[in-house]
Write a protein that binds this DNA or RNA. Structure first.
Lengths: 219, 219
DNA sequence: GTATATTTGTATAGATCGTTATAAAAATCA
DNA sequence: TGATTTTTATAACGATCTATACAAATATAC
């Protein structure tokens, strides 16, 4: 009934599971990613994972719980990629481009046409009527804002931004840029075009720089 | 079989239709708006419009064609609202806020929780696998970019922006701001909060202003 | 070996999906 | 009035949906 941990305890009784829950969740995510939550049947998920419907239900509960788990998994991967890009010692504009390049790698992953962001492409539709999905999406969006804002505050402390720059406002624009890239990628924009878009956005966002060659201290 | 024009020709034969096609399309749009394309059954559309399924098929063809018509109708209303906001004689920052206020009025229209943008909330999910929806969405996104860019070029000509400002880059950020507002509205953000978000974005976007009190001519 | 525990595949239940056949209802034309 | 035209409502078609009942299969425990 329940899912066995990957690190098996003392001994495993009964017939051993034929599929790994983590890879099954990944395959399920890929399927939802293409056709959305409502547009994806459990038969399609079963075909993608190689698991039978009863096995899917035994491991994940039901379709809704499976999607929520896929959503949580995606948030984990996506937020970690953004944080890693912003955490390095690169200058602000380079750090932002690393974050957008990481996002583009996710949005253009998989075979066939680009799927964009899993959240923007599938969860946003359900968010209007589904409280659990709404909570997950709202929390993730807040996390993105907070990650960008923290990086802009750091940039301000380092003198990469003028003291009158508004880190919260810049974070909103940085997050908005990521989301418009997600939408456009799914709508068919080419990757190179979206990278240029990101560069243009970064140029404006980082426009609040101190005067060049005027000393490193601010104020 | 086909739809009769509102302006009746010489005389109308046969039983008169009980429902107006335009109001039916509006009601159908409201229904798709909440639960998406795949998540909305034709029975729900029939209940919302008061029409029976055969009548819906007689007027609109099928579910897909009905959704496409709802999408085209929404683009018309949405793009017109943005253009009207940007067309006035207001200063750049006021014009942008008029556009965002118009968008917020749409995103928070209807009863119950906010539905956000019809395109972002329902079409983006389908865009990955549906060529017709993809074409409509891609064209609409290009139109938004073009409308904003035209306004920024005008602002530059008027001296509201410095000559080195990049109208295309600012247009991307302006469009991205509208789309992040759409996402956040559907995810439950309060309207006042999103209006402040818009103001912060406008402040950054309009930051490439000429020096104040330094003459109105540029260069 | 026998008993117990767990997963598997098959098959399907019950509801809902998009769509349509059919005929009654309501108008005009002759 | 009766014939024609168009829309309506009822009913249902076959397909697909989420979810589960069931028994065979495969492991350990004794």
């Amino acid at each position: 009934m329940a899912r066995q941990k990957s690190e098996t305890g003392p001994v495993r009784r009964g017939r051993p599971p034929a599929y790994d829950a983590e890879t099954a969740l990944k395959r399920a995510t890929e399927t939802f990613w293409r056709t959305g939550y409502s547009g994806t049947s459990l038969d399609k998920v079963a075909a993608a994972t190689g698991m039978s419907p009863p096995s899917l239900y035994a491991v994940f509960g039901n379709k809704h719980a499976l999607y929520l788990e896929a959503l949580a998994r995606y948030w984990g991967i996506s937020l970690a990629a953004t944080r890693e890009a912003l955490a390095g010692d690169h200058p602000l504009d380079e750090a932002l481009m690393l974050a957008y390049d990481a996002a583009l790698s996710i949005y253009f992953s998989g075979k066939g046409t680009a799927r964009g962001c899993f959240v923007v492409g599938t969860a946003v539709t359900e968010v209007a009527e589904d409280p659990a999905i709404r909570n997950s999406v709202a929390a993730g969006l807040r996390a993105i804002d907070a990650d960008f804002e923290a990086r802009f505050r750091l940039a301000q402390d380092r003198g990469e931004l003028t003291p009158d720059a508004d880190p919260a406002a810049l974070a909103i624009l940085a997050a908005a840029t990521m989301q418009t890239i997600a939408i456009r990628a799914r709508a068919g924009a080419r990757r190179a075009e979206l990278r240029e878009l990101a560069q243009k956005a970064v140029r404006v966002i980082c426009g609040c720089r101190p005067e060049p060659r005027q000393g490193t201290t601010h104020a």
